[in-house]
């Protein structure tokens, strides 16, 4: 029996609806290309996302005046804002780094919070053009510990400095 597709249709009959197989093929190709880009980003950026302040000049990839990402805790009472810029001190494992950021950091930027600054060291100052606030995995209700709040905040920096 011949089951090959018909080419001629009967008078008045609707032509059979054809499924477009090119679309899934296109999506598979796009997924492969996208996957390649993501893997490249993973190998170049994600694996070693930042250097800690105490690793500058010590650890491979955290040396010299190259562009890098530095992680540390914003030192208490170190934030100063002037001429549209912000300066503060990053602290980690008893090592400090002065940061000059060209703008007002976004997110929940504040003292005693860990941040990652993007930039490069110029004359001993880390000139940053991007700040990311690194939130911890602790979630504390605003009104739960009001009595001890002041003491906890005072102790927060020493805990976060690692």
């Amino acid at each position: 029996m011949d089951l090959t597709p018909r080419t001629a249709t009967e008078p008045g009959a609707q032509p059979p609806a054809r499924k477009h197989r090119w679309l899934p093929i296109l999506i598979v190709v796009a997924a492969l290309l996208g996957g390649g880009v993501i893997v490249t980003q993973f190998l170049t950026s994600a694996i070693d996302y930042y250097c800690n302040v105490d690793e500058i000049g010590v650890r491979s990839g955290c040396d010299g005046e190259r562009r890098m990402r530095v992680q540390g805790v914003v030192e208490q009472s170190s934030i100063k804002q002037a001429d549209g810029g912000t300066t503060f001190v990053l602290d980690f494992n008893k090592k400090t780094l002065k940061v000059a950021y060209s703008g007002d950091p976004g997110g929940v930027f504040q003292e005693c919070i860990p941040v990652i600054a993007h930039g490069r060291i110029v004359n001993g100052v880390f000139e940053s053009d991007r700040i990311e606030v690194k939130h911890s995995n602790q979630y504390v209700e605003k009104n739960a510990t009001r009595i001890d709040e002041a003491n906890e905040e005072a102790a927060a920096c020493s805990v976060l400095k690692g």
Partner: peptide, 9 residues
């Protein structure tokens, strides 16, 4: 929170 929509971490 972080101040950015996306990072390649």
């Amino acid at each position: 929170t972080w101040g950015t929509y996306w990072v390649w971490d």
